[in-house]
Nucleic acid binder design. Structure first.
Lengths: 97, 97
DNA sequence: TCAACATATCAACGAAAGTTGGTGCACAGT
DNA sequence: ACTGTGCACCAACTTTCGTTGATATGTTGA
């Protein structure tokens, strides 16, 4: 299903911050817990927690609890879907107005 | 040339607003002047001027003066480039960290 | 049960983004 | 020249975003 305009806006907003793009780049190597990300990105825990929430609400990552750790995983399909929407933008535009 | 992380963040920020997505959708039908967009989107002129500036600075539109009108044109390649970056995100991630 | 740890969440703040109404500039038609 | 129009830009304001430090929740291991 093609994403709605407002869903697209939410995804792009999630992608509009360098910290979040950094997180998504790390997640291409596979699942990461928050503590690994704080190390790799040298960022405060509450700060990452905030950004991970934004990414999660946009559907770009999913999380999984394992013991005391929360593991975050990239949702590639959502990322790809947004990419396709850009590639097919002329059709998107014609459809919606 | 593949866009940098910060250039991507800037493009995605430009794409993160529904008003701007609306503008870009209209521009798929071809060049538009500001006054046509104010009609079609029912938005104040200064508001559109603001958003068009954001889009222009991100490289997503170009403008052209003709008499008293400013015509804005969609820059599809920039849009498509951002889309490709999302499709190839795994590579982007591996490259940058 | 207690201490240590991983994480989420909250409150407070500053910074950035978006909106609105107004002003000014450039061009067109008279 | 004068007037009207299309637009950019500015100032003031409101809203949203991102950061930080503190506190709360849940989990593990002693």
């Amino acid at each position: 299903a093609a994403p709605s305009i407002s869903a697209l806006a939410r995804v792009f907003h999630a992608l509009s911050d360098e910290t979040r793009l950094g997180i998504l780049a790390r997640l291409t190597h596979g699942e990461r817990c928050v503590c690994e990300l704080t190390d790799e990105l040298d960022a405060a825990q509450s700060r990452l927690s905030f950004h991970l929430k934004v990414l999660k609400e946009a559907g770009l990552v999913s999380d999984r609890r394992e013991g005391r750790w929360m593991y975050y995983t990239l949702q590639q399909e959502v990322l790809a879907e947004a990419g396709v929407a850009l590639g097919e933008w002329p059709q998107v535009g014609k459809k919606c107005c």
